[in-house]
């Protein structure tokens, strides 16, 4: 699967409190959450983001709280994929569980600038900067996670397993 979009770029330690501030957590409606996504570090994000766009972060992206509202808000805002130097572990789990593609690529995070248009090939992990043609390679997912992603997320996987027991 290939994803294409323009890049929103942020620094290290983008935490879940800035991805979706706690003051909006009295709802779990993804569309509502998306309106406030990234608000505390980038007021324009919600109005500027277009379907398919890609977020690039630095180290420890998604640190802090376990709120799944964070990847949900990112996904609901139309972002197709997040690339970072590293991800905080709960955010990593959550993104995979809900089917938000995330890629670890320190080189891409270092070299690609905000506003660039890029293409991400999820099957190979290749990230291409469209204008320059430069490519970067992301780490492949462990096998178990590839299965999870293929199944369409954790709930789909569990649903199948539960279905098998019930038979």
């Amino acid at each position: 699967m290939k994803l294409k979009g323009k890049v929103f770029k942020y620094g290290d330690n983008v935490d879940t409190d800035v991805i979706i501030p706690a003051r909006y957590l009295n709802t779990s409606d993804p569309a509502e959450l998306a309106k406030h996504c990234m608000e505390d570090i980038d007021k324009d994000f919600a109005s500027k983001v277009e379907p398919g766009d890609i977020i690039i972060g630095g180290r420890n992206f998604g640190s802090g709280s376990s709120r799944e509202h964070a990847p949900l808000a990112i996904k609901a805002s139309g972002v197709s994929c997040v690339i970072a130097k590293s991800f905080a572990r709960i955010f990593y789990r959550n993104a995979i569980n809900i089917g938000l593609p995330i890629l670890i690529s320190p080189e891409a995070a270092e070299n690609i600038e905000a506003g660039a248009r890029i293409e991400v090939d999820l099957d190979t992990g290749t990230i291409t900067e469209l204008e320059s043609g430069r490519t970067f390679q992301a780490d492949p997912f462990p096998e178990y996670m590839q299965e999870l992603i293929k199944a369409g997320g954790l709930i789909e996987k569990v649903k199948r397993e539960v279905g098998q027991w019930q038979e």
């Binding site: 376990s66 799944e68 709960i90 959550n94 569980n97 997320g153 709930i155």
Partner: peptide
């Protein structure tokens, strides 16, 4: 250890 809501559901 902390997990997300989908983990909690599963």
């Amino acid at each position: 250890t902390g997990v997300g809501s989908t983990d909690l559901a599963a």
